[in-house]
């Protein structure tokens, strides 16, 4: 099983190298960084430099989950590979999740990418006073994002309307996930909603790890990221199972 997962991850790298569409978010990341840093510089709020570097990275991680991971099963279906995959002795969920894990790992490169843009173009080296918290939170976010992506991958095959709304998921998620503006600064009525979005816990932790001040309540907050992300995995596994049932029962996964 581990051998299969590794082979699928390797395959995903090869596939992504040939697909500009999948890597688009990584190409966009430096420009987003430039935009946010220009705002910081113009407003003279140097204290927000860390925010301006984290935001484009989180945008990239989500955009790749949405555009690359989310389309894995849908593309296999349109290109006639899904049935062949079902006929193979490998469990489809393992195949899909390994590929999504690789995409998520690659998307995390954007953290370094955005840091470098700040360093090279704006001469700002963002320091990380709590490196372990920073890395741990990133890992938790990666895990949760992969879970969310697996749910999207199943959803985009099962319902046509989900695909129509695919484009619409990005900015609402950026707002609720506190990608740039901390959830605490959002209008009162939105705040309860941010609590159920794993990224809002994650981005707050990341921002905390960049400030000198001691960080409060680390474990429960990381747990929130992992539990909410884990829900994504469960949902994803269930949806992929539904897709396979539909393929084997109906002959196709036609849109409901």
């Amino acid at each position: 099983m581990i051998r299969l997962a590794l082979a699928m991850a390797r395959f995903q790298i090869a596939a992504m190298r040939r697909s500009p569409h999948d890597l688009m978010a990584l190409v966009n990341a430096p420009l987003f960084t430039v935009i946010f840093l220009a705002i910081v510089r113009y407003t003279g709020r140097d204290d927000l430099t860390g925010y301006a570097v984290l935001a484009p990275a989180m945008i990239t991680v989500f955009a790749m989950a949405l555009l690359a991971s989310g389309e894995i099963i849908a593309n296999d279906r349109t290109d006639g590979r899904l049935e062949l995959l079902v006929a193979s002795p490998s469990p489809v969920a393992v195949v899909v999740l390994s590929r999504i894990a690789m995409i998520t790992l690659v998307s995390l490169v954007s953290v370094a990418e955005c840091w470098l843009v700040a360093r090279v173009l704006f001469g700002k080296a963002v320091a990380v006073p709590h490196p372990w918290l920073f890395v741990g939170t990133l890992a938790a976010i990666g895990l949760a994002m992969a879970g969310t992506a697996s749910a999207m991958a199943g959803l985009f095959v099962l319902t046509r309307s989900a695909r129509t709304f695919q484009n619409s998921l990005s900015y609402p998620f950026y707002i609720l996930g506190g990608v740039l503006v901390p959830p605490a600064l959002l209008p009162e009525w939105l705040r309860p909603l941010t609590q159920v979005v794993f990224l809002s816990w994650g981005t707050d932790l990341l921002r905390d790890s960049l400030s000198e001040a001691p960080v409060q309540r680390v474990l429960p907050r990381i747990a929130a990221v992992i539990v909410l992300g884990g829900t994504g995995f469960l949902l994803g596994a269930w949806l992929i199972h539904r897709v396979l049932l539909k393929v084997r029962n109906d002959g196709t996964v036609s849109h409901a």
Partner: peptide, 17 residues
């Protein structure tokens, strides 16, 4: 279609364990 013939076969050989 964007991958080579060899890459395609390697992928399926992994799926066939």
């Amino acid at each position: 279609t964007r991958l080579t013939a060899r890459q395609n076969l390697m992928y399926w050989s992994a799926l066939y364990r």
